[in-house]
């Protein structure tokens, strides 16, 4: 399986998901399951680190949108860490860059979360 998903709890209700590999039509179900489980554990504010992601397609984007819907039910948030220009381009093309806050680093994402 060309995908690895690691979850870290930062504080109560806030967690980070590090994804490594390619998120496509085949691997996206693993990512979906891992994030859904993390949300079920009460992590309604999630930072998803895409720095280790080499490729994402529309099914991967669908997983992120689904996760956003679920945390919104609990007034939570999903923010992303991404500097790969090719992946950022996909977020721009699909208009998702207007829906997700995208940060350059974990520090930047955590600081933005603290500022609320």
């Amino acid at each position: 399986m060309d995908i690895k998903v690691d979850k870290r709890k930062v504080e109560e209700g806030l967690g980070i998901v590090d994804i490594l590999g390619e998120i496509d039509v085949y691997t996206s179900s693993w990512v979906k399951e891992a994030i859904a489980e993390f949300i079920k554990e009460g992590n309604y504010n999630i930072i998803i680190n895409l720095e280790g992601v080499r490729y994402i397609d529309s099914t991967g984007l669908g997983v992120l949108i689904g996760a956003l819907k679920r945390v919104k039910e609990h007034e939570g948030s999903i923010s992303l860490i991404c500097t790969n220009p090719q992946i950022k381009k996909i977020f721009n093309i699909t208009g998702l860059s207007k829906i997700f806050a995208i940060y350059k680093s974990e520090e930047e994402a955590l600081a933005a979360h603290k500022e609320g």
């Binding site: 397609d57 529309s58 669908g62 093309i93 699909t94």
Partner: peptide, 11 residues
């Protein structure tokens, strides 16, 4: 209608 075809059109 689906996002994948929209991506193909854009690229």
């Amino acid at each position: 209608q689906d996002m994948g075809l929209h991506i193909i059109r854009a690229l």
